[in-house]
Simulated assay, not measured.
Amino acid sequence: MTVDAVEARALVEGGRVALRAGDARAARDAADRARALFPEVPEIAGADDARLFADVAALRAEAALAGAGPYDEVDLRRLAARTPPDEPSAALLVRVLAVQGREAEALEVVERLRDELADRYGTDPSPVITQVHLALLRGELNQPAVLAPPRPPARVVLPAAWRRPMTALLGRERDVEALETALDESALVTIVATGGAGKTRLAAEVTRRAAAAGQGYGWSSWPACARPTRCCPPCSRRSAAPTPRPPAATWASNAGCSAPRSVCVPWRRTSTA
């Protein structure tokens, strides 16, 4: 199978940003364009191809569940039938079937997957399946979504250097995803690495995506906190008085005020400019 993986991945990322911003139609359009890059009946052999195809199918399903476009379970069934089965795709399939009032078929998907995992691997389904199964039994999955108009983007101001067009950020998608996950879980995340490792570039990419999704953000960069008043807010507070640090998940490691050279600290959940 030959697919323009870079284009497909870019469409999926753009669709994810649109979906987080509440624009399910744009997300579905991006997902459909990404799906068109694959053959109608794809031969999914490698793990990378399978992951990319699963991401495309997931985005289409999530946009449909948000009220955009028809439900399409064919790709989800293909992924759920793989060996080993793709459990997140199976969970989405359960949701797609349930929202159409096909609870019996959704239960069959769960039972079939549970039997296959037990017989072939001697294991139980992962939490993603047990949680969707419980929601199905409680009748929480049969309410179709009503498509709401997209939220207007928040007014954000990026640093001038970060607004300039840049080349594609290649080979660091896992870093971007890890940083976005950390930002979803904590209000403050610190990026720490040696000089020239690409900390600012990574922070710029994540912040630009957040700005495109209309999310509030903040950021700070300091050489070594030589002047505390110019450090990030937690550092400044610590230099003025021994106040407790805010809850923070440190991405990479936490250098505090002794961080060498340049450290970028983007954080969300702050007011926009």
Rank of each mutant, 00 (worst) to 15 (best):
E140M: 08
T123L: 08
G139F: 06
P125M: 00
P149N: 11
D124R: 15
R174C: 02
Q143C: 01
A154C: 11
T167F: 03
V146W: 10
P149A: 13
W162Y: 04
P165V: 06
P152T: 15
P144E: 07
R138W: 08
P150F: 02
S126K: 15
R164F: 07
R163T: 14
A145S: 10
A145E: 04
H133Q: 15
V132M: 06
V156A: 05
R174I: 03
S126G: 14
G139K: 07
P149V: 11
P152L: 12
P127W: 06
P149K: 13
V157G: 09
A168S: 14
V156R: 04
L141A: 10
P125Y: 02
A160P: 00
A148K: 13
T130C: 05
A145T: 03
R151G: 05
A154P: 02
D124P: 02
Q131P: 00
S126P: 04
L158N: 04
P153F: 02
R138Q: 15
A135G: 12
P149T: 10
S126Q: 15
N142L: 01
A148D: 11
P152D: 14
P125N: 03
Q131R: 13
L141Q: 09
L134H: 13
W162I: 06
V128K: 01
L147T: 10
G139L: 07
R138G: 05
R164L: 13
V146T: 15
P144Y: 06
R151E: 11
Q143A: 08
P159Y: 01
A168C: 07
R151K: 14
R172N: 00
L169H: 07
A135V: 08
P153L: 13
T130L: 14
E140Y: 05
N142I: 00
S126H: 12
P125F: 00
V128Y: 03
A160N: 07
E140A: 13
V128G: 03
N142Y: 03
S126V: 10
L141M: 10
L169P: 02
E140H: 08
P150V: 04
Q131H: 11
R151I: 06
R172F: 00
T167L: 05
T123W: 01
L169N: 05
L136G: 12
A148E: 13
L158E: 01
V132F: 04
V146G: 08
A145W: 03
D124W: 10
P159Q: 07
R164M: 11
A148G: 08
A145R: 06
E173M: 04
L147D: 10
R174F: 01
P159K: 04
S126L: 14
A168D: 15
A148H: 12
P149F: 12
L147V: 12
P125Q: 04
P127L: 07
L169Y: 08
L141S: 08
P144N: 09
T167M: 03
G139H: 06
A135W: 12
P153Q: 09
A160Q: 10
L134Y: 11
Q143T: 10
P152K: 13
E173N: 07
R138F: 10
V146C: 09
R138P: 01
A154H: 05
G171C: 05
D124K: 15
D124F: 09
A168G: 07
M166P: 05
V157S: 13
L136F: 14
R138I: 07
